[in-house]
C-alpha cells in the first residue's frame, strides 16, 4: 500500500502556524445495482450490516466527520442507484467529486464489467474538465478526481481467488487513473476502514483550510507556494 507521507503538509503547517485545519471532501460511489454500495456506507457510518438492505432510489447522501491528528475531515459521500436507467442522473453526483469509488461484486463478472463502463465515463469527464480549466491557478484547491476500484463481498470467495482476477489486474494496468484497488467486505468488515483511511490520508494538502477559531468562519487559503502544491497534486495522482 502507498505510504502516505505528506511533505507539503508539514511545510504547510509551518507556513500558516494555525494548528487546526479542515476539509470538505466529496466522494461518490458508483457501480452496478446490488454490489453493496449502501452497505459499505452503512459499515462506515454505523458500523453495522444488514443482510438485506433496501434498494437505493435516485441517490442518498451521508456525511461523516473524521478527525485525524489536527485535521478535521468532513467526508460528503454520495450513494447512487445502480440500475442502468439512473445513469443519466449520475453525472450530477460525480461532478466536482474529489474521489470516486467504483464498486463491484467479486463474485459477479457482470458487475465488474460495469466498472469498465464507469471508468470510461469518468475518464471522459476528467478529460473535459482539464480542457475547460487548464492548470487553473486560482485558490480553489481542486485536484484531479481520485478513482479507486473496490471489489466488495470478498467474504463470499471463502479465501479463494476471484475468478476474474486477471481481468482486474489488466484493468488496473490499462487504467492508470485508478489509483488503488481494495478487496472489501461490508458484511465481515474487511478493509472498509483501510479503504477510507487510504482516502483520508491521501487528501491533498491544498484542499485543506484553516479553522479560524475566533469567529468560527472558514477562510480561503492563500498559499504562497501554491504552484508547488499543484505540481505535488499532479504527481501524487498519477502513481
Amino acid at each position: 500500500m502507498e505510504s502516505a507521507t505528506r511533505p507539503s503538509g508539514r511545510q504547510h503547517a509551518l507556513l500558516t502556524t494555525k494548528p487546526k485545519r479542515t476539509v470538505d471532501y466529496k466522494i461518490v460511489l458508483l457501480g452496478e445495482s446490488s454490489v453493496g454500495k449502501s452497505s459499505i456506507l452503512e459499515r462506515l457510518q454505523n458500523n453495522t450490516f444488514d443482510d438485506n438492505k433496501s434498494s437505493t432510489i435516485g441517490a442518498a447522501f451521508i456525511s461523516k466527520k473524521v478527525v485525524r491528528e489536527t485535521d478535521l475531515i468532513n467526508l460528503q459521500i454520495w450513494d447512487t442507484a445502480g440500475q442502468e436507467r439512473f445513469h443519466n442522473l449520475t453525472p450530477l453526483y460525480y461532478r466536482n467529486s474529489n474521489a470516486a469509488l467504483l464498486v463491484f461484486d467479486l463474485t459477479s463478472l457482470e458487475s465488474f464489467k460495469k466498472a469498465e463502463y464507469w471508468i470510461n465515463e469518468l475518464e471522459t469527464y476528467i478529460g473535459e474538465v482539464e480542457l475547460d480549466e487548464p492548470a487553473s491557478n486560482e485558490g480553489r484547491g481542486r485536484d484531479t478526481m481520485k478513482i479507486i476500484l473496490v471489489g466488495n463481498k470478498v467474504d463470499l470467495l471463502n479465501g479463494e481467488a476471484c475468478p476474474f482476477e486477471d481481468q482486474i489486474k489488466e484493468f488496473m494496468n490499462v487504467h492508470k487513473s485508478v489509483v488503488n484497488y481494495f478487496k472489501t467486505s461490508a458484511k465481515k468488515n474487511l478493509e472498509i476502514i483501510d479503504l477510507f483511511e487510504y482516502i483520508t490520508n491521501s487528501i491533498d494538502d491544498t484542499l485543506f483550510y484553516d479553522i479560524d477559531e475566533e469567529n468560527k468562519s472558514k477562510k480561503g487559503i492563500i498559499d504562497l507556494n501554491f504552484s508547488n502544491a499543484t505540481s505535488n497534486t499532479a504527481s501524487s495522482c498519477s502513481c
Binding site: S33, S34, D51, K53, S54, S55
Partner: peptide, 8 residues
C-alpha cells in the same frame, strides 16, 4: 436482485 431488498 430487488426482491429481497423490498421492505426487508
Amino acid at each position: 436482485k430487488d426482491l429481497h431488498r423490498t421492505f426487508p
